[in-house]
Design a protein around this nucleic acid. Sequence first.
DNA 1: CAGCTAGCCGGACTGACGGTCCGTTTTCCT
DNA 2: AGGAAAACGGACCGTCAGTCCGGCTAGCTG
Lengths: 183, 183
Amino acid sequence: MRADATRNREAILRAAEELLAAHGAEHVSLDRVAAAAGVGKGTVFRRFGSRTGLFQELLAERAEALARAIDTPGSPLGPGSPPLTRLLAFLDELAGLAERNLALFAAHERACAEDKYADPTYVRWHAHVTALAGQARPGLDASFAAHALLGLFDADLVRHVMREGGVTRLRSSVRAFAEALLG
Amino acid sequence: MRADATRNREAILRAAEELLAAHGAEHVSLDRVAAAAGVGKGTVFRRFGSRTGLFQELLAERAEALARAIDTPGSPLGPGSPPLTRLLAFLDELAGLAERNLALFAAHERACAEDKYADPTYVRWHAHVTALAGQARPGLDASFAAHALLGLFDADLVRHVMREGGVTRLRSSVRAFAEALLG
DNA sequence: CAGCTAGCCGGACTGACGGTCCGTTTTCCT
DNA sequence: AGGAAAACGGACCGTCAGTCCGGCTAGCTG
């Protein structure tokens, strides 16, 4: 990839973030992103393929730290902890991620409406939750439960829950739900 | 309402159903609906206000029988049965409804993306599930659990689960999930 | 440094969509 | 019958995702 291509790629990602923060997920069209990044619209599509691709990459970037934490021993999240502990810690981190990136979650959701199970980040999360849920409570349909648990982070629901109680309420509701289901 | 207005209203609803059945939720634009119904586009908007309004009314129509069953004593769904029984029966009916109207669920979801908690049908279902879940398992955040349970009928998830196992699989997964959560 | 070309750039263009508007037509009450 | 209120329809608008291609430039080669 040529130097200008790399530079533009970064500019587009940063512009998209800024627009998401400034106006809601609703008002971020790719025209706007291109304009804010100071590039042509064609460049956005060449780099990311589609609206879906752009938001998938943005989410992947924001989710990277979490992905690393999952594989690193030494925290409640990492390998070595009991499954239920790991799962609860993961969901707690996810709640934080959702809070800090609510607009991105919303935009991502909308963009992936078609075939959300094709998103790499979602697929990784689902595999992780499925494995842990299966260990924490054998006998349950773990894959289904994993979809349901990840469904708790639907942007609308997150916003709704946080409207009364902020992240704290979100974290405790998620935790209580998961414990009721698996504990 | 004038006679022609009533007639057209019905024609639009039927045309929308047909198009949903024939092509997926994705390919049902209001232009197409108007054309298929043999009316002008303006008529569609005058009757239903927006795309959202159209699919909300369509869903309300399909959900009417279920709404009546909820209030009629004499079945596991109705008043008089124990809360958990009622809830499981309700979710089972919902699974059937989702199966028979998968395309409508998908279109409705997409159309209500903005403010899905404003949809009257969703609100009724949520109130019902919240009440029953609260009785079945006091102490849990019943409202949150209700959103989570209704989230099981996300069109994508329903389609995904039914791809391997059809309605039977859907029904049993939903039931097992709800029992694990509340039983 | 000069020259070359693969690869990138930009933005005009397309097609489709949700939603609006208003001149015309229909209903139905008096 | 007659007229006003109500409804009709489809041209029109602004917006958006996505395409295309003529022109430019980075960065390698000699």
